[in-house]
């Protein structure tokens, strides 16, 4: 059949029918794929809630881990330790990530910026256990002991590229007209960056930073030989510190049934923690868009 010959009426309706059949088939396929993609999430959530709810009780949040065989232990030190580690990570990761992102957005075309952007991509692609080894080499080995500082440092390293790229994107979204307005009033470049650009982009950056915190909250590998974990209550930065992911790891791989139950409980708490952070992040995002649409009017 020549491509130039006009298709007959019959051929056309036949082709249409074939296309429709193909269309409905593909709809079913993608629908199934969509369903399958959420199945793991539902299974995990169901498992977590069923397995974790059994051990959840007020004491689970206030008690220290119990030795095997003793019932009623908790993850109080793990929750506190994770918060401490996230705090240290934020103190390291946020200012550096923020500054780097601002630099990338404002001086993005320079050679140095290209190098920094490339390296930050490499860093974000690095397996987190490698970051852990680096922290071990840099802090644990010289100081001769595992410490909260080393763990927080490792998590902070992971946060830097996440915060930097997000900051760069958010700052780039700030309209050129606003920057020019500030410059034309006599603002120096860095002042307009800090006062106008960063402030306008801030809600977006806060969101991204919280997402980064949520992301590293569940990291286990980089903590294995840095924070190390402890069954005791300790908030000292120069000593090993407990962390939820580490406790889950230890409990889940133990031979004791009540410890494995504790692992489910710990996992549930960890997920809840991440969820809370994500919800705060979404709130901040929503208030940003709310302000943008509620306050502005077109001309």
């Amino acid at each position: 059949m020549s491509a130039l010959a006009a298709p007959s009426r019959v051929q056309r309706t036949e082709r249409m029918a074939r296309r429709r059949r193909m269309g409905s088939f593909m709809t079913v396929v993608v629908w199934c794929a969509a369903l399958l993609s959420v199945v793991p999430l539902i299974l995990i959530a169901a498992h977590l809630i069923i397995g974790g709810a059994r051990v959840l009780s007020p004491t689970f949040f206030t008690a220290l881990p119990a030795p095997p065989g003793v019932s009623g232990g908790g993850v109080a030190n793990g929750v506190a330790g994770t918060l401490v580690l996230l705090g240290i990570a934020s103190v390291i990761g946020m200012p550096i990530g923020l500054g780097a992102g601002l630099y990338l957005a404002e001086h993005g075309r320079t050679r140095l910026a290209t190098i920094v952007r490339y390296l930050s991509d490499v860093l974000s692609g690095l397996p987190s256990i490698v970051v852990g080894i680096f922290a071990w080499e840099l802090i644990v080995r010289p100081s001769g002991q595992f410490s909260a500082l080393a763990g927080g440092f490792a998590l902070g390293m992971i946060m830097i590229p996440l915060v930097a790229r997000a900051t760069e994107e958010m700052v780039r979204l700030v309209p050129v007209a606003l920057r020019e307005a500030a410059l034309a009033l006599g603002f120096t470049r860095w002042r307009s960056s800090l006062q106008i650009v960063l402030r306008t982009a801030l809600p977006g950056i806060v969101t991204a930073a919280l997402v980064a915190v949520a992301r590293v909250a569940g990291e286990t590998a980089p903590l294995l030989f840095t924070a190390f974990g402890t069954p005791f209550w300790s908030l000292r930065l120069d000593r090993p510190i407990a962390a939820l992911p580490l406790q889950i790891y230890n409990y889940a791989t133990s031979p004791y049934d009540d410890w494995r139950a504790q692992a489910w409980g710990g996992a549930l708490v960890l997920i809840a923690l991440v969820l809370v952070i994500s919800i705060i992040a979404r709130r901040v995002t929503r208030s940003r868009f709310g302000a943008a649409t509620g306050g502005a009017r077109g001309d």
């Binding site: 007209a177 606003l178 307005a181 034309a184 009033l185 120096t188």
Partner: peptide, 19 residues
């Protein structure tokens, strides 16, 4: 240049008030 721009003000094609 920032001192200069305080002496030489500018208004743009599209109004650009700060939010």
């Amino acid at each position: 240049s920032s001192v200069l721009r305080q002496r030489v003000g500018m208004v743009f094609q599209r109004s650009n008030p700060f939010p």
